[in-house]
Amino acid sequence: MMTTVQTASKKKGRKIGKSWTIHLFPIPALIIYGLFVLYPILAALSYSFYSFNGFSRESFVGFDNFVTLFTTEPYGSMFINAFKHNVLYFGLQMVAMNGLAFILAFIIYKKVKGAEFFKIAFFLPRLLSVIVVGFLWKLILNPNFGTLNILLGRLGLEELQRAWLGDPNTALVSIILVNCWFGLGFGVLIFLAGFQSIPGELIEAARLDGAKGMTMLRKIYLPLMVPSIMIMTVLTFIQSFEAFELVYAMQGSMGEPYYSTDTLAVFFYRLAFGSSTSGSSDALGVGSALAAVLFFFILICTMIFLKFTNKKEVEM
């Protein structure tokens, strides 16, 4: 923005006064952005340095909240527990959602019959509200009335029937797979756009050179798809570490059962706003500290990702 304005003013010479006023135009937008985006973020960060009594802010305590978060039980072990779940969330989504989305996008790209229909069909869940998705799958996964267990019973697979959301061994994986179902269509769209932007001449040239099958995929498609893959990785990473809605909709703010579906964002909600069952909480300061940690963790990891991508692109 700056550079274009400056070059424009250089060309026109004397109109410096007029060009200066141009800088005033973003101000309304900046005020709105500052008030509703920057200020809340910064306020939350500042809260992490104060102690709280209910909702009233008490005294400045420096880094005490951060120390409490990592060293005081039960916060410390809850943090590690939730963090592990976020990592699993990310890993499983990368494999199950993005892996499948990549394959599906490739098939659609190859123009199978009904490609347009599949593209829409995969994207359809994305149009539902997350709360609706959570409610829907809660019904499907219900142990005694749910479709999934009834279906398994009909197929004679009774030994596979279980309380999917009540068993700590399957609860988190169930939720992550529901999230994959929800997000699959978006991945397909991004990857499909990536495939379609590969120049046709390049593929033709590779064909003429005798490349086919896996060689084609490894040497041509995959390297050219790196930008799309990186975008999806970064987006999935951010989404995984902010995972909240589905867990809250399906398991409540306690990460039930027995904290087996707890994530950092759910943990934050519980700290800052109290759980739905236990009433008020005094831990707004510790909660803000957790939010700050989460924010900087995502920021730094995303920057490392981006740096890595840029390098990759240069190498090619």
Binding site: N144, F145, R162, G166
Partner: peptide
């Protein structure tokens, strides 16, 4: 308790 009680919530037990 009913079968799969670890997966039953308020709405389920009220219905039962």
């Amino acid at each position: 308790f009913p079968a799969n009680s670890e997966g039953l919530g308020m709405d389920d037990i009220r219905t039962i």
